[in-house]
Design a protein around this nucleic acid. Structure first.
Lengths: 239, 239
DNA sequence: GAAACCTATTTCCTATAGGATGTTGCTTTG
DNA sequence: CAAAGCAACATCCTATAGGAAATAGGTTTC
């Protein structure tokens, strides 16, 4: 039946352990990078052909992505990528981030090991190196570094549940339109360092406040993106 | 090939639209009610035979449940139900609940419609009717009513994201050992009514505080369950 | 000219089959 | 008697096939 040939696998990285896992990561990247446009239908068979696997693991990966909130499934109509965040949903997201990440910053300041404080401080300082590079790469590097910093604080907060919850939220954030000018990168670095300083100093209230201020500023920086393209909300199925 | 016979489907409810959806709900119930014991291996084929479907939809439902945190998947070894919460995880859960649900209560008090306040008040009053009935049914009814009250507040808070997050947390709570004496039902009702009163009065600070106090008390009520059975933590795979 | 109906195509959804891998029990050897 | 190696088994994982439903386009009728 010739099903075990050493295939190419041009889109996915080196086989980890299970095919489904690789397919999951591949599709996740496809959605995150808007290669699969938001709000668009996802053809299972076409995707399977593209990734050079059978539809079954694709289907299974899609089921996981649905629980993650990156795709949606209408009963007899197939999967669609989650549409772009509306202005209201975007504000809601940042409200919740302020609540959750403010708490992680405060907790990190209260009970974090000396080694952990050192790591946070180093991470905040390392952010400066991002300035070089061209458009896309620079943006991707900046986004990755920002995510890492926030996740590091969540990790140090000592609440695995809080960390998981925030991670899930962040994947929603990537549903925001992706390529906009990141003019505020220097500001972000400054704010990160303020947060790191408060955590290192062990001042919980200051850390919480610094995080909330950072997220508030970040929200403002993202806002212009809503005025650029048409149909910033959910384009279809508003009934 | 005789695959379209009108089968019995003894375990699942009336077909909704997709088989996978029904299977998902069935397995979820099985895990929640500990019919599939926590920390135990889940045999896909056996489960498929039990539910009278092919392994494929079972596999797909399991993938969704993994994202929900109710089962785990070890790469080449199959699925296992998530083990019972350890004491540390339980405390973590209630810490996060206090943070999130305290916020929903406060938000509900600030901006909720008059009709919504009415519903909350009614729901808190309705809780009294649960007192009758025998062990299992009584416990199930009490749990369902409690969940409904908390979800109602989350709904009224006006933050869909917060509501979703809390819903996800609550399914984790059901990972706690299920059948313990609910001696504190009257207390719970009293506390619920205090929360409802604060929300109706529009006092955000009082609502937040009442919710946090309620969860703190609830946590204390649940605590004795840890001293009853052996191996309260994660039994296996501690390496 | 517009709306409703019918038909054809595409796509999804479920079932079955076969290969690869992990696990378990037994045997053999030091 | 214990430990290591081997073999048989069970289970998972992936691929393929076929039936059912929804969607889209064209035609017909009012």
């Amino acid at each position: 039946m010739a099903q075990q040939e050493p295939r190419e696998g041009r889109l996915r990285p080196a086989r980890r352990l299970t095919l489904t896992e690789d397919v999951y990561e591949s599709i996740k990247t496809l959605v995150m990078d808007h290669i699969l446009p938001p709000g668009e239908r996802v053809n299972i068979d076409a995707l399977a052909r593209e990734l050079d696997v059978s539809p079954t693991p694709v289907r299974e990966a899609l089921a996981r992505l649905e629980a993650d909130g990156l795709v949606r499934k209408r009963p007899l109509s197939g999967y669609t990528t989650t549409p772009l965040l509306s202005r209201a949903e975007f504000d809601d997201l940042f409200d919740v981030r302020q609540l959750l990440e403010g708490a992680t910053a405060g907790r990190a300041a209260t009970h974090a090991s000396a080694e952990a404080r050192q790591r946070i401080s180093a991470e905040a300082a390392a952010s400066i190196d991002v300035e070089a590079g061209d458009g896309y790469r620079r943006h991707a590097a900046f986004t990755a570094l920002d995510a890492k910093f926030h996740d590091l604080i969540a990790e140090v907060s000592g609440s695995p549940l809080l960390r998981d919850t925030i991670t899930r939220l962040h994947s929603h954030l990537h549903l925001h339109r992706l390529y906009f000018p990141v003019a505020g990168a220097p500001d972000t670095n400054t704010e990160h360092q303020r947060i790191a300083a408060a955590i290192v100093a062990g001042d919980a209230a200051a850390a919480t406040e610094a995080m909330r201020a950072h997220l508030s500023a970040a929200r403002e920086r993202h806002l212009p993106a809503f005025d650029q393209l048409p149909t910033p909300g959910t384009p279809r199925d508003s009934a």
